[in-house]
């Protein structure tokens, strides 16, 4: 059916569209996003008695973090290593790596981020349902690491998405990653619905 063929975008159009997206994001992300820590402070100031609700909510949230698949580079293999037979991330209820961001609440950024990839990661983050968390894994995730000077590398995921926990290393060993996840769980534990949505 020829009608159908006409509706298909040409490769050149797609490329141009993608290029424009990348350039726009690049121009707007020259500064890091502030780490989402403010609510921690606020929570200390407030004193609303919703603790048992919080306890239940936080318990359920921290006990089944579902990470979304985001495997750009080398760190991915330590992430897979952490979830495979030996280190077995499922112990923490992080059973399933989700292929769809809509079913996930944790983004573990395992690898170098390039500007060409940045719009996709941004979209991935936008599509995840609240509440959501981000762990920046590896030197590349934190600052761009060994590739920081490059013309095509984003110097740190915090240019694109707010990062909750930074896990250093190049690559971080699975134990380090698990430690980072443990820290995130502690952080979730201090969260309160009284300050949510602000």
């Amino acid at each position: 059916m020829e009608v159908g063929r006409e509706r298909i975008y040409s490769a050149a159009e797609l490329d141009a569209h993608e290029g424009a997206l990348i350039e726009a994001l690049r121009a707007s992300s020259q500064q890091p996003v502030t780490d989402p820590d403010e609510w921690l402070q606020k929570e200390l100031q407030r004193n609303v008695l919703v603790t048992s609700v919080d306890a239940v909510l936080n318990w359920s949230r921290r006990s089944s973090l579902w990470p979304v698949i985001c495997f750009p580079a080398c760190c991915a293999f330590e992430f897979i290593g952490a979830s495979a037979s030996r280190f077995d991330m499922s112990r923490f209820g992080m059973d399933i790596l989700r292929g769809s961001p809509r079913q996930a609440d944790l983004l573990i950024t395992a690898g170098t981020l390039t500007w060409k990839m940045a719009p996709q990661v941004r979209r991935l983050y936008d599509q995840m349902a609240e509440p959501k968390w981000v762990i920046a894994m590896g030197a590349c995730g934190i600052t761009g690491g060994i590739f920081r000077d490059s013309y095509s590398v984003v110097p740190g995921y915090n240019r694109i998405v707010p990062v909750d926990v930074y896990v250093p290393g190049c690559p971080p060993r699975p134990e380090t990653l698990l430690n980072g996840i443990e820290m995130l769980r502690q952080k979730i534990n201090t969260r309160s619905i009284a300050t949510e949505g602000e």
């Binding site: 141009a16 290029g19 424009a20 990348i22």
Partner: peptide
């Protein structure tokens, strides 16, 4: 013949 690694507009 077009860009392969970098994006259009680089």
């Amino acid at each position: 013949l077009k860009r392969i690694f970098l994006w259009d507009g680089f």
